[in-house]
Design a protein around this nucleic acid. Sequence first.
DNA 1: GCGGTACGTAACCAATCGGGTACATTAAAC
DNA 2: GTTTAATGTACCCGATTGGTTACGTACCGC
Lengths: 104, 104
Amino acid sequence: MDAVLQALADPSRRTVLTLLRDGPASAGDLAQALPIARPGVSRHLRVLREAGLVEVRQEAQRRIYTLRPEALVEVDDWLEDYRALWRHRLDALHTEIARGKRTT
Amino acid sequence: MDAVLQALADPSRRTVLTLLRDGPASAGDLAQALPIARPGVSRHLRVLREAGLVEVRQEAQRRIYTLRPEALVEVDDWLEDYRALWRHRLDALHTEIARGKRTT
DNA sequence: GCGGTACGTAACCAATCGGGTACATTAAAC
DNA sequence: GTTTAATGTACCCGATTGGTTACGTACCGC
């Protein structure tokens, strides 16, 4: 969980995930799609891999990266504890509007 | 969105959110529950506030922080694009694995 | 007023991060 | 075996982070 949220904090890494949603891609392809040089992308990919968000397979000299969306289930589960709260809050808000009241 | 994920990357800040799930708390209370000194907590609270994850109200000398779980809806929405993917993956693991195609 | 309490902010510092360039490595092609 | 392509790693460097202590500020009780 920690590693996943850490990985998601960086915009470049989130872009990589977005790109991989369209299908697997090589490190070079990903680097070309980003505004940073290849070694930088390589390090981002390492972080994503260690967080379990992508997996890699070797294909000749290329390393093909694939999205592992299951890793995001951790985040989904973490959110679960808050979902009830924000739903309750939105409900309460609607109720207050309906009744014309305010709290606190 | 960016600010929210940035805020969530730090474990101390996530702990603050967890604490606030039990109800509003003063900055001092939160600091006492964390292994870091009050000024550090103050800065964490600032980050959380600027991300919209908490809100403050003044009560005499104390500043009472309240969770704003709605801010997490952003993350929930961001996850949405991936949810379909991981469900599909879990659902049809055996059939989809054979997919080795890609475009150049 | 004056002192104490509860904060936030400023200044500082060590550590980490995210970028770059240069080099190492691996596999294919010849 | 030498060359070329693809990619990771090592190293450096400036910026940011997360923690500290010291200080400033607002509020209450006296």
